[in-house]
Structure formats: C-alpha cells, structure tokens
Computed example of a mutant assay.
Amino acid sequence: MNTIFGLIITVVMVFGGYLLAGGKMGIITHALPFEGMMIGGAALGAFFAGNDMNTVKHTMGDVTAVFTGAKWKKTDYQDLLCLMHELLNLMKQNPVEVESHIEAPGESSIFTKYPKILKDHSAIELVCDTIRSMIMNFDNVHQVEELMQKQLDQLAEDKLHGSHALQNMADALPALGIVAAVLGVIKTMASIDKPPEILGGMIGGALVGTFLGVFLAYGVVGPFAKKVKDIRVEEHAFYAMIGEILVSNLHLNPVNICVEVARRHAPSRVRPTYDEVDQAIRNMKRAA
C-alpha cells in the first residue's frame, strides 16, 4: 500500500507542479510513447543482457514483493520456533528418530505441521543440513557453526541479486534518457528549415527523453531497488534465526533457552512475544 501511495504522490506532484507552472501536457503525451519505447526498451534489453535467467526470474518476483511486502509474517516466526523446539527436543531424546525427519521432510510428521516453512527450500535445507552435521558428530563445534554461517552468507547474497539488478537499471536510466534526447535533437536538426514553433515542439519532445530517464531512475526504479533490498534483508532474519537457535544448541544450551535466544533475533515488527511463543509450544505439546 505504501508503494502505491508513494507512486501516486510522486506522479501527482511532478506533473501537477508542471501544469500549475503553465506547462502543456500535449508535448509530453505526444513524445512519451516514442521516448518510452526507446528508454524502456533499451533498459529492458540491457537488463536481459547483463543477467542470467535465474536473476531475471528472481527480479520479477522481487518487483511483486515491493507491493506484497515481506514473505514471513509474525505467525511464521512463531511457527519456526515451535518447529525447532520440537526437532531439538526429539534430537536430544532420540537422535536416530530425528534423522528420518530431516532425510525426508516432506513425509515428516513434524515438518508437515508447518506447510509454509516446508515449501521454502532454503529454510528446510539450512535446518536439515545443519542438524545432519550435528548428528554426524563433527569433532569441532565451531566447524559446524562455520559451515552454517557460510550457507547463510551465500543465501543472503543470492537473495539480493534482484535488488542489485534493479539498482543497475536505475543507474543506467538517466544515460539512456540522454540517448533518447540526442536522437530527438538529431531528428530536429534534420528539420532545421521548419518554422520556429515546429522546431520548439520537436526540441521539447526530445527533452522528454531526458526527463523520462531521470524520472524513472529516481522516482520509480531506484526506490523499488531500495524497497526490495529492505524486504530481502528483513526476510533473511528468518533464516538467521534458524542459525541462532542451532548455534545455541551446539553450545549445549537447554532447548527453551535456544528458542528464546532465537526469538530475540527476530525483527521487532514481526517478533512474537515470549508469552505467545510459550503458549504456542504448550498447545503443540498438548496436541502431540
């Protein structure tokens, strides 16, 4: 909602100010389709040329996320804490049994309680790989922790590819606007024998290219890139919380302490309270 509201304010203030200052929309509306085709087409072509298909797909999903917000909600963080509480308790009681859950999470009676988490390949892979390493009795606890941290770092880097691609596009748009404007000037110079009022309209149309490139860069694509980055950074806290609870368990803390350490790592906007988590775990135990 904030994104749509912000775009509306930007468009209304820019074009409203132009009209109130006595500007005419005729020149802009006449030139806009052609300038937009040149600038938008060049930006899109450069985007495809500079990124692989995996990044292209991620970026499309990122643009959708700008309007829908972060994937993980408060209830998802609470579900994650319950999931990890159950897994770690089982691992302490029966390490052999927990192995069957991490080897086939899609068939696990524990993982299937949380379908949204189960559908996220990155979260399931992080949980299962780390617990598998713990069960394998790595001699060095810090080695497991280091492996998990590298996995988290790689995940964070992968999630930001879309933001970087959008920011690169925003950086290129002003220059592409100049390209469109130069082409407009070339067209104008080829018609130098026309009356001044016609030449003025052609020059005005050429300058629409510069305006459009700068406007799209700083008014649309740049803010989108920033929003995508903020969303992905917030979502990474979900995976980092998995890391926190497993690291705490590696250092032989009680499961309740591990859960509380992880809970405090959640972003404040979506962090469940201690009482909410405690009640959810009690309900889970009663249901079991």
Rank of each mutant, 00 (worst) to 15 (best):
I117V: 14
N168Q: 14
K229L: 07
T112M: 13
A49F: 14
G22N: 07
P105C: 10
P272K: 11
K116V: 08
L87Q: 09
D139K: 15
V220I: 15
V270C: 06
K113L: 12
L44C: 07
Q93H: 13
M284A: 11
T59S: 09
F5R: 12
L7I: 14
L176I: 08
L207I: 01
E146I: 02
V141P: 04
M53P: 00
Q151K: 15
G41I: 01
V255Y: 11
K194S: 12
K92C: 01
G17S: 07
K92N: 11
S109P: 12
K71P: 01
R264H: 12
Q167A: 13
M189D: 06
Y239Q: 02
G36E: 04
F47S: 03
N51K: 04
A180M: 06
A266Q: 02
N137R: 13
F138L: 07
L32S: 05
R264D: 05
L88F: 14
I9S: 10
L176C: 04
K92V: 10
Y239F: 15
R282T: 05
V66Y: 12
F47Q: 02
A225N: 05
R282L: 11
P105H: 10
V141D: 12
G213K: 02
L118Q: 10
D129L: 11
E86S: 15
H142V: 00
T188C: 11
M37P: 00
A237R: 15
I135C: 03
K73S: 12
L118A: 09
K113Q: 15
V141A: 11
G205N: 02
I39W: 09
D139A: 12
G201P: 03
I131K: 05
F238L: 07
P115G: 13
G184I: 02
V270S: 08
V182R: 06
L173K: 01
L88T: 09
G177V: 01
G205C: 03
P223Y: 05
H142A: 06
S100A: 14
A190R: 14
Q93Y: 12
A123H: 05
I8P: 02
V270A: 09
G209D: 00
L176Y: 05
Y18G: 05
K116R: 15
L19R: 08
E86K: 15
A43V: 03
D129C: 08
L173P: 01
I102A: 07
V98C: 10
I9K: 13
K227L: 02
G213R: 02
E197V: 11
V63D: 06
L90R: 14
I281T: 04
L250D: 07
D193H: 15
V127W: 06
M189P: 07
L250M: 15
M1G: 07
G201M: 04
I135M: 12
L252P: 00
I203C: 03
S109W: 10
T64I: 14
D278W: 06
V220C: 11
G61V: 08
I28V: 15
A46S: 14
S108C: 10
G17W: 04
